[in-house]
Design a protein around this nucleic acid. Structure first.
Lengths: 191, 191
DNA sequence: TGTACATCAGTGAACGCGCGTTCACTGATGTAC
DNA sequence: TGTACATCAGTGAACGCGCGTTCACTGATGTAC
């Protein structure tokens, strides 16, 4: 075996990471196999040595993006706090300007859930898994003292995703900031 | 003038209506000019007698879909009620299985906001207008007795859109129903 | 330690296809006489 | 009322382009001697 096993795996991971960024920035149909390979430092022809189809890559990139985003939010929301963060703290970390302005490193659901839901069955399956992973993760954080119900978990996730989508859809920056602040406040029950 | 003025206008409206359905069902990039024209009973070549570009049609179809959806929800939420519907009643009308299963007649924001936000400037402008129209409409309905704050209006809209997107992204029908019910309950403050 | 070799990760030209857009045309229409 | 005509809504072939995917190849690598 002329190449180390880990070499191919690391190349594959580079492709997945490049895809995860590009897909969140431009949508699954807004980026080509060639562009993804180029930003992974490769040429397009080698793609099919790693993946059976573009849809297969999209599905894998989607799961990768979800995992990465939750890990990042967990760390950010926990910063400077003694207790593990609750739903409102996670939502606050999620609904920030940096997240809005950098979809390529953010939540794949806010970046492209509707188009993924119309995609290939493999992509739809990955999307369903990402939603389930988000819910399981939030439920875990709703389980401390001041336990919150399933409908609070689902309602919070809906408002997080919808809030980020609205902030990105808003016409001007001022209104976009207002959306983020308002949805944060809404989820703190401080309004 | 060999053709009546209204004839061209009605053809144009037929194209806009066909586009509004197809775009919500398949996304702006998931449907071609040719397919839209065909479903309006025309051939693709005549398109540019009505619109300057596909993006121009997408922008107009988007506004059309928003207007149509709000009118439908208003009527549905008011049915059998004496007083005009409040936020929770509108959200309940929005978060229903029929809406989830028929995106082609539903909210264009839940159907394709993220991809529209990445689109042509004309499309982005139309998207911003649709968001503003939704907010103005909801504010009007939050103004009765038991007046609700701006952050409640924005939070409610975020949860409506996010809830519908999650319901469509959920893996199976059972979980999808659960999402709709849970977000409804969340917005009724009944949890 | 040095060299010949088999492997296979990665290359790049080529494929068929559907897209948005253009354009020369056709033929149904309302008008002028 | 009937007919010749100018208009222009709608037609359909054609364009250049980028896409996902295929495939014959190349050359860097670890191994066997």
């Amino acid at each position: 075996m002329p190449w180390k096993e880990e070499h191919k795996q690391s190349t594959r991971q580079r492709i997945v990471a490049a895809a995860a960024s590009a897909i969140r920035l431009h949508g699954p149909d807004g980026v080509s196999v060639g562009q993804i390979m180029k930003s992974a430092g490769l040429t397009h022809g080698g793609f099919y040595a790693h993946f059976g189809s573009k849809d297969e890559l999209v599905a894998e990139a989607l799961r990768h993006a979800g995992d990465e985003t939750r890990a990042f939010l967990e760390e950010k929301a926990a910063q400077g706090q003694k207790e593990p963060p609750g739903l409102a703290a996670l939502a606050k970390a999620y609904l920030c300007g940096q997240h809005r302005d950098h979809p390529e490193h953010g939540c794949p659901l806010a970046a492209c859930a509707p188009e993924l839901a119309r995609g290939d069955p493999r992509v739809q399956a990955a999307l369903g898994d990402v939603v389930n992973d988000y819910l399981a993760w939030l439920k875990q954080h709703a389980d401390g003292p001041g336990r919150q119900s399933d409908s609070q978990v689902l309602g919070t996730l809906a408002a997080m995703i919808g809030g980020m989508i609205l902030a990105r859809a808003a016409g001007d920056a001022k209104q976009s900031d207002k959306v983020l602040k308002a949805v944060q406040r809404f989820l703190e029950h401080d309004d």
